[in-house]
Design a protein around this nucleic acid. Structure first.
Lengths: 236, 236, 236, 236
DNA sequence: GATGAATGAGCCTTCATTCAT
DNA sequence: AATGAATGAAGGCTCATTCAT
């Protein structure tokens, strides 16, 4: 809008091309910044992170960040938002679907797959939770509660194993949180303890199968007449 | 030279009293500082924490901290050490005992009880793990690995449920980590999601029973002829 | 990658100009900082100086200093180095030249001239000496000892006036130190006592002539057959 | 005055003894503090000195200093005063005496002797001069100016060697300052350069004789018919 | 009088952010 | 859009000084 009108078609094409290249470069830089920020924030948290560290990891000057985000906090929130969007999309599909064991098993697998694509994001969420950050209520409302509500509704469908006592359901829902997000967030510690990389494809797959098997093991009553497929999966 | 002998019994008593009172006061201050530090570090981590915030929470001046610890980092390590000592004691008792289901169940209960006495400590460990801090290897070697080794040795005693596939044992050990430490570390998020306080006595007890029941449920083969007590517990 | 090539000669010129202007400005700032630091350090010494005082005297923000020097100490050393370089150059010329009275008289005059261009530097050296600072051995080795050695070698050429006794030579060499560096270092006190400014051109010139006359007066034996140039002195 | 009256002669004696012992201890502590302060201030100056360093050197607790002096600055001034008093006494004797070469030679010797008894004091004065401290005008008025005035009056008595040009007298007076105070103040540097200790008795004596010989050498006209004794001195 | 503990002020340094280019 | 330089606002830590004993 601001530039002078191109005088010739050739110039127009040239301009368009230049503009496209520019836009591409911008998008590239922005992604580099977001990726770098995700990684660094996941280690140090919002307050412990130095913006120059993000800039260094992104390969740009510290001042450049401010061409993309008005503040460190804004960048932090952008990272959180970018990570949470795909999860919300998954959750919406899940909430819209039928209340069946199968749906939940699928959701778990998809969440694990998504988290493995942004391996630092779960850590970020854990950090935010432990810092009792402002984002926690929002996060809880927009993502965790809907998912948990779905799980709880389904659990209510079957009898509770007597030996667990009252108030079991929230703990089971929390168990899934621990096994999915916790697996990624605690990767550094687990790696240290077990000498295997929880973030490797094999590590993620193993944990995914483990969760799945646990569902079937814990709630056999939910699998009436459908045990066959689960065994096929678990025996792999 | 350092201290002149008191001339009279009265003076002696007076001196002793005064000195004792002094010692008591400094012990009180030191505990206040450690407690405050544990709480604040658990929220913000080492780098995100302001010394002045700790001082404020402890009710002393920022400079006073340096009468007790030479640096923020030293204070941080003192907090970690204080928290880990009781756990190491528990672990040593466990390692010395026989490899039986009962021993492990007891250990879990005791660990939960200990963590509930220092509710911020687990969060601190989680933060340290996520920051890939220098303390992680030490922590892993001195505490997590011994415990996990114990658990793994016991698991090896029984057949693995086939549906879990290979490499199950580490995941089970990690499961206990998630359910014990994770319960305390994620308390702020769980509270937000479920509207109950995981750190309340009831919350801790419920989670403890949940873990216990899970052990029995997952590994019925380990409970030959001893199912009775577990049911008694779980039916509450 | 670092710098895209300028597309047109005009742009090139523009860029070059801009960059040159930038470089000029930072050079200006750096000189302002060094000058301010020399002045303030000369009054308060390394430990007694506040960084903000230097910054204020240089007309920049305290944080700006750290864009140029990594620490107060590094800045201090830069000031010392800058001041000592020209002296070392003089000394090297002196050491390379012949051992003659004339050479030494010239050196003294040049040293006085150089010190008058950095009137605070001598004070800095005196402060450092009195603080028994780390720089003293280096300074002694790189500058004072070579000069003194030259003077001593020359003195050995002639007979010592009997009334001075043994061990005279070092004291004479020290005398020159006191009269040159000491003149500048003690300027504040001398100004107070005598109500004249030792740092004024006239003050420096007077002291220089005084030292020169003293040389000839003390060591007439060194001026054999060269009385012509030292005429003023003899003509009483 | 404040204590209750002693009931018996024995008690009275006891009290008197106790009081004397107390006073003695106090005087001892005060001297320790002053000595330590003189030494430390002479290295670091007023602003660069830590009161705890003085306390440590004096062997007392930092807080104890405040039982003797209300502030670091007050202690600093006490050190200066203690050091300057004997010099002022010397100066008053000198000013009261006749204007003769002998008087001045004696003064120089006595000043050197006094400075050697407080080897850090000259450094302190130099530091204060270079810091352009508040004490400089006082010091100049109460000590340096009177002495210098005496010297100048005497110099006026004889013809000035023409080769020194106009304005010589102040420079000669300053020369004595450099050779006396400067010798002690620059001791650390001179030691480094010449590998001899200027503060040792031999070092002080040598410098004293050097100054004395210089007086006679520079102003032969002032020594009419009195050369004998000076030669005896200088020939040692 | 002597001391350990406490503290407000201040110091060096770093950091997030802005600005000129 | 990108950057080097500049800066106000902390942040960790030290220091002179005070207080209670």
């Amino acid at each position: 809008m601001r530039e002078t009108l191109p005088k010739t078609p050739a110039a127009a094409r040239e301009t368009r091309t230049a503009r496209a290249a520019q836009a591409e470069r911008t998008a590239f830089t922005e992604k580099a910044i977001l990726d770098a920020a995700e990684q660094v924030f996941a280690r140090r948290g919002l307050e412990g992170t130095r913006v120059r560290e993000i800039a260094g990891a992104a390969g740009v000057n510290g001042a450049t960040l401010y061409n993309y985000y008005p503040s460190k906090t804004a960048l932090y929130e952008a990272v959180l938002d970018r990570g949470v969007q795909p999860l919300i999309a998954l959750m919406e599909g899940y909430a819209a679907g039928p209340r069946e064991l199968e749906t939940t098993r699928t959701l778990v697998a998809e969440v694990m797959s998504q988290l493995s694509r942004h391996p630092h994001f779960a850590r970020l969420i854990y950090l935010e939770a432990m810092a009792e950050g402002d984002y926690v209520p929002t996060l809880s409302r927009k993502w965790f509660r809907p998912v948990v509500d779905g799980i709880l509704r389904e659990l209510r469908g079957g009898p509770v194993p007597a030996e667990f006592g009252q108030g079991l359901h929230p703990l089971v829902a929390a168990l899934f949180l621990h096994l999915s997000f916790g697996h990624f967030a605690m990767a550094p510690l687990l790696r240290e303890i077990f000498d295997v990389d929880p973030l490797s494809p094999a590590g993620v797959e193993r944990q995914t199968r483990f969760i799945d098997a646990l569902i079937l093991q814990l709630f056999p009553q939910l699998t009436n007449g459908r045990g066959g497929e689960s065994e096929g999966k678990g025996a792999g």
